[in-house]
Structure formats: C-alpha cells, structure tokens
Design a protein around this nucleic acid. Structure first.
Length: 343
DNA sequence: AGCCTGGCCGTATCGCCCAA
DNA sequence: TTGGGCGATACGGCCAGGCT
C-alpha cells in the first residue's frame, strides 16, 4: 500500500479550517457554517478527491449503510422482482443493499445473517418461504434475537413465523380463488405440481387449492412433488405424464415450475390449452414473453419488496404484518376442457 | 510463553471558549 | 447571538511493547 486515501484532516488543512468545520460542511450539522467557508471546504474536498472512509464512518457512528437481502434463488424472477423493490426503497434512504443467496438451505440463511450482523448491517430483509425444519428455525430465531439486540432490524417476505415485521403473500386464498376459476371453466380432473413437502409456501398453495376444489365439489387432485424450480416442474411433469391420470388441468404452485411443465408438455406433443390447461402462481415478469400466456395468481412482487424495505427501515417496537392478496389472472393457457386429458 | 495495556486508524460529535 | 476553533472522547479491531 503506497498510496493513501485523502482524509478529512487533510481536507480541513487544505481549506484552512478546523476539522470540526470540515465535518459540519461535508456531513451536515445543526450548526451553521458560512457560505465562504463552506465553498472552501467543498472545493478542497473536490480538488483532493476526498471520499469519506466508510469503515471509519461506520466506526464513529456505530452503524453502517448496509441493508442485507437474503433470497433463496438469485435466478428466480420472483426474488429479483422483490429485490428490485427492496433496492429502490433502500437507495432512496441512501443505503446500500447486500445480496445473499441461500439456495433454500436454512442453515445458510443463518450463516448469512450472522455475517451481516458482523458487518453491522443496519437491517436485513429475509425473503422466501419458511421450511418445516424446526432446528433451523430455532437457530434463525436466536440469530435474529442477537441481531435485534445490537440495534439491527429484520423484516421478512414470507409466512409470519419469525416474530418480525412481515409481508405475507396471500398463498392459500390465492390458490383457492384460482381453483374456483378453473372449476368454473368446467375442469373436474386436476393435477398439482406441488413443490417440495418441506416448503411452507408450497404446502399453503396446495392446501388452498385443495380447499377450492373441495368447495366446488371436485375430486382430490393428483399430486406430484418436486423441486421448486423450472427443472423441478419439468421433471414433475414427466412423472405426471407417466401416471396417465386423465387430468385436464395442471396447477403448478409457482410460475417457474409451470414454465418447466409447459416445456415438458411441448416435448410430448401436447398442446396448451387444447390438450391440457395449465396455471401457475406469482405472475413473474418473465411471463410477458411466454406463449401461450400463462394463467396465474398475481402477487405484487416489487411492491412486496418495497413494503418490506419500508417496514425494516422504520423502527417500530412490535412486529407488524402486512398481507398482500393474490389476484387470479386468466390467460390463454387455460380454457374449458375439450380433450381426454393426460392419458 | 502468554497475557495485558495502550496506542493507533479516520470520523463524528460533544462541550467549551473566543471573537465579532 | 452567531460562527468558528479547539480538545476530548467514542467507536472496534489490531498490534507492538512491556509485564509476569
């Protein structure tokens, strides 16, 4: 290290003012500084290329400008949409978002939160479904408690299970409403690509869908579990086709799985919606370029990210819950049943 | 050899003093 | 009263030096 950064002391010296005055000018203060000195300080800072040392600021203020965002899967548009919302609000507040990817590993989630705590992150937004793993949940609760105790704030976009401010997507109600719309089209034999059994979001959407079918007097759907990804939807559809269920309508519990399912159906020479209808969940932006258009349940993903960010940056003594309902959007991938279904 | 102390890094901010 | 300077202190991690 031969070159050294310009410090505030050097700026003050160059401008011929005290350290305190330079600080008042460059960081703002309740104290006034005359225009003349202000211009001298600003000019010196520019001339010398002064850039405040963020580590030193964090040291002096005992707080950084970092806001953590933990997501399950960086490639999933569900999370990039939420990230866009979180980032917009954080940047408006002059903060910087640090992204961590858990790969749906609850242990990794705890590790990342631990690291963000070590960096004195101001706040962390945890996005993504909770799992049914109780040990991991309790370790995460401990880590959240430690972070909160040292002044950090946590919010979640998921089920309200962490005891922190949470934006809750309307998974059950949305899936139930979707089932009502699909049965109204005339479908009676359903299959569900249900995702992993330990993901609460997948469970909730399956449960809501089942309730909707039951209320319409339609038989239980055929359920296939698989990964919560495009490839998971593709593989689950292979299993579904092998089972020859006669289903006329397939519900994938998220959009990326539905996209994988559409690819598998296409490869088998099946047409959507003539041979089989298909619907997803989330309404990720990618769907705009999908043909035929995918019927789905729209969640206001960016807005959910924005709301989570507003909650996490607003110091509040008790945990708040914001519910964001899903809205059924029917597009070309669903129609009234005309063929014999998946045989 | 291991432990403890104290100084240093850069910045923010406080209380206090001084000069118009 | 206002604007400015000054010195002290705090923050957390690191390391050199001195001590047992």
């Amino acid at each position: 290290m031969t070159s050294r950064q310009v410090t505030l002391v050097e700026v003050a010296k160059h401008a011929g003012v005290s350290l305190a005055t330079a600080s008042r000018v460059l960081n703002g203060s309740t104290r006034q500084v005359s225009d003349e000195l202000r211009e001298r300080v600003v000019g010196s800072a520019r001339r010398l290329g002064y850039l405040p040392n963020a580590s030193a600021q964090a040291l002096a203020r005992n707080s950084s400008v970092l806001v953590g965002l933990l997501v399950h899967d960086i490639a999933d548009p569900y999370f990039s949409s939420i990230a866009a919302g979180v980032t917009r609000i954080a940047e408006e507040a002059g903060l910087v978002v640090v992204l961590g990817t858990t790969g749906r590993d609850p242990g990794r989630e705890v590790e990342l939160l631990h690291t963000l705590r070590a960096h004195r992150a101001r706040a962390v937004v945890i996005a993504g479904t909770r799992t049914t793993d109780r040990t991991a949940a309790s370790r995460l609760a401990d880590e959240i408690a430690a972070f909160t105790e040292q002044g950090g704030r946590v919010a979640a976009v998921s089920q309200a299970k962490l005891g922190v401010d949470t934006v809750v997507p309307g998974n059950r109600a949305g899936a139930k409403a979707l089932a009502a719309e699909l049965t109204a089209l005339g479908h009676r034999r359903f299959a569900v690509l249900a995702g992993p059994q330990d993901l609460v979001v997948a469970r909730d959407r399956l449960a809501g869908f089942r309730t909707g079918l039951a209320e319409a007097g339609v038989p239980e759907p055929f359920v296939v579990h698989g990964d919560f990804t495009r490839d998971g939807g593709y593989a689950a559809t292979q299993d579904l086709l092998a089972a020859r269920t006669g289903a006329t309508c397939v519900f994938a519990v998220n959009d990326v799985m539905a996209m994988g399912a559409m690819a598998a159906l296409r490869e088998h020479g099946l047409r959507v919606p003539e041979d089989v209808s298909i619907a997803g969940f989330d309404d990720i932006p990618t769907l705009r370029d999908l043909a035929p258009g995918l019927s789905t349940v729209r969640l206001p993903l960016e807005e959910m990210g924005e709301r989570a960010a507003r909650l996490v940056l607003d110091d509040h003594p008790t945990a708040r819950t914001v519910r964001t309902p899903g809205e059924v959007v029917l597009r070309a991938s669903t129609s009234s049943p005309s063929g014999t279904g998946l045989r």
